[in-house]
Design a protein around this nucleic acid. Structure first.
Length: 269
DNA sequence: TCGATCCTGTAG
DNA sequence: CTACAGGATCGA
């Protein structure tokens, strides 16, 4: 579920449901959920009030008072939601903040890869210092992309998934953005010429912006996800929606990459 | 830069 | 049963 658009959808929902709430209790139902922090560290959030929710890349920052913040990362399968009664949580809830009034802020993840940490704000800044800029922020310009890409030999797909230059793209939207820009995923990012850099910049923004409302919808109606209509992701062997050529899958940095060999040619720089 | 690792679920 | 999964880190 969680790349930038899904994390954004989660946060928008949390803002309405939990801003201003007071944390009354904390339980690490699975201690792994706070690892490597001791659950007792996170428990220090008890007594704090939730001021706001922010997103930095794929991280959810829950701003508390007293100079503290929670850092929640959903990883592959996590979710963070407000539940009406903290006593009635599902068995996939790994960490739970009971809020004043009895509702709960629940970190859910069957795989137990997602985590929640508590940090003083200054410490959190250091922890997240390596994250690149947000692709939806005004700072993400074609010029920024050009300079970040300059002289780099990384395959375009691997570059987009690296959180250091740009924070928020994952396996799905990296592939979708490259398709939209007609860039072959193995192209060394530094070899792209200006017009192509512009296309890619635009493609990244369009793909992410389109995905946010879709993520919000699939949230409101769980169960009937109309099916994300990806162009290439997870469509190996199926017809490209543009040219009907078979979508291919290759492996890059240990992850699957999907692309259309006809629409995304290595020679297109 | 690669492979293993953290876990569990699901598809083939 | 094995392979693989929307992420990220770590040591070899």
């Amino acid at each position: 579920m969680p790349e930038l658009p899904e994390v954004e959808a989660v946060i928008r929902k949390l803002r309405k449901a939990a801003t201003g709430a007071r944390i009354a209790a904390f339980q690490a139902l699975r201690p792994r959920a706070t690892h490597p922090q001791d659950p007792a560290v996170v428990e220090a959030a008890v007594g704090c009030t939730i001021r706001s929710f922010e997103r930095q890349g794929k991280h959810i920052l829950v701003r508390l008072d007293k100079g503290l913040s929670l850092d929640v990362h959903l990883k592959l399968s996590g979710n963070l939601t407000v539940i009406p009664d903290a006593r009635l949580h599902t068995d996939a809830v790994r960490a739970l903040f009971t809020l004043k009034g009895g509702s709960g802020l629940a970190l859910e993840d069957r795989r137990v890869l997602a985590y929640v940490h508590l940090h003083p704000n200054t410490e959190l800044d250091n922890k997240l210092a390596h994250l690149g800029i947000d692709p939806l922020s005004p700072a993400f310009t074609p010029e920024f992309l050009a300079s970040a890409a300059k002289d780099r030999n990384k395959p375009a797909k691997v570059f987009l998934m690296d959180q250091k230059p740009i924070a928020g793209l994952g396996n799905i939207y990296s592939a979708e953005a490259l398709f939209r820009a007609r860039v072959h995923p193995a192209t060394p990012i530094g070899k792209l010429r200006r017009p192509r850099i512009h296309s890619l910049h635009d493609a990244i923004r369009v793909v992410l912006k389109e995905a946010i409302p879709a993520a919000v919808r699939s949230y409101k109606h769980p169960g009937l996800h109309e099916g994300m209509n990806y162009f290439v992701y997870d469509r190996e062997g199926e017809q490209c929606r543009i040219c009907r050529c078979a979508v291919k899958r290759i492996e890059q940095a240990g992850r699957s990459t999907y692309f259309c060999p006809n629409c995304q040619k290595r020679s297109a720089l």
